[in-house]
Nucleic acid binder design. Sequence first.
DNA 1: TTATATATGTTAGCAGTGTCAACATTAAAT
DNA 2: ATTTAATGTTGACACTGCTAACATATATAA
Lengths: 205, 205
Amino acid sequence: MNNYHHGNLKEELIECACKLCERSGYTKLSIRSLAKESGVSQTAPYRHFKTKECVYAAVATVGFKKLSEACNIDVEKKATKKQLVKAGYRYIEFGLQNANTYDLMFGTAVGNFADYPDLLESANKTYDSFRSSFSKLTNDSEDIIAFKCLTLWSMVHGLVGIIRKVHVVGDDLKNPSDGPISSARMVADNLEQHLDMVINGLISN
Amino acid sequence: MNNYHHGNLKEELIECACKLCERSGYTKLSIRSLAKESGVSQTAPYRHFKTKECVYAAVATVGFKKLSEACNIDVEKKATKKQLVKAGYRYIEFGLQNANTYDLMFGTAVGNFADYPDLLESANKTYDSFRSSFSKLTNDSEDIIAFKCLTLWSMVHGLVGIIRKVHVVGDDLKNPSDGPISSARMVADNLEQHLDMVINGLISN
DNA sequence: TTATATATGTTAGCAGTGTCAACATTAAAT
DNA sequence: ATTTAATGTTGACACTGCTAACATATATAA
């Protein structure tokens, strides 16, 4: 009960890392700053995370859980097309509003998910519920479902990346001067059309 | 003509940076290693690049030029749907075969393209030729074209990201143990179907 | 209960990094 | 020919990931 041992360091480090990553991006996160924030010595985090990449993996794991919640795909009920469009919309919203965390989840900072069982499981759950919902909209075979699911996922994933990167104004690509969110708003009005169009193509084919 | 001045340092640094970035990823690149490779002092690169991000921007600039070439969209001739599908295919191929460079072009390592005029121009050219080709397939208004173009671009961009990240095997996402290229091959057989499906949806609507 | 083993935290330090200031040398401009 | 600007060098600072050696608290077992 002495304060030599923190008692809850790992959880606090993860929480702190999530906050720091989302606020400033994962490149700005250092083990040392993490330790300082938790009022602990520079190398204490190494008792809980072998490398910095392990910290990234922990943040990404939390990220996938949040993404699942955000999309809020209810596997029990029969999914409708409208629900699916909404899930796609929420996916994009999540990607834009948690851009730095999203980088960690889909970028290269965490090399191989297989090295991080929790992360792998968290990512799989997200995808499974996505695919499971999709399968209820069609009588296609599993192969075709996987195929179409990949198409749709690529669509929303790609939109997150592109929207964040550019304004599409006339003939030019321009960087958003006012942040990704308002850049997204430009597209948001048409976003459901995008999704609807693609989903229609998929489920009617 | 003495060897105190290198004479061609900037070009050599860029070339070297491109090579190192593509080989090992941009995180492994250091100004110092770059200088060493060019046989010059540690801080010499700072005469040509104010910060490390400027080096990244230079690599990304070259990347966009290569991407344009790879897609090989001939603006003069009238584009066909087949050509467009092929361009999409080549886009994905480029993204997979130059994954590390692609990260630099579409990731967050280079913050604001507007800070790097060459990069902005290079990126704009790539997009312009893409959009220009697309516009020849339809009689839609410019707004609709931009809208559909964004959809298609997101599609291929998203596929690059997703294919690199995962194997889709049954119910699970699995990391490719044998690198992104062979992971892509798994999808490659159906890739033209993907693109064809989406493009059909776009130009027939 | 006491002894031991394990988990967790600390201190000191290495090798590497981006970046800057001050200085040296060469090429370009006047 | 002299000045100026461009380019390269040296030395240094603050920061980083990470390791080894040591300290302390907690869990386990005798």
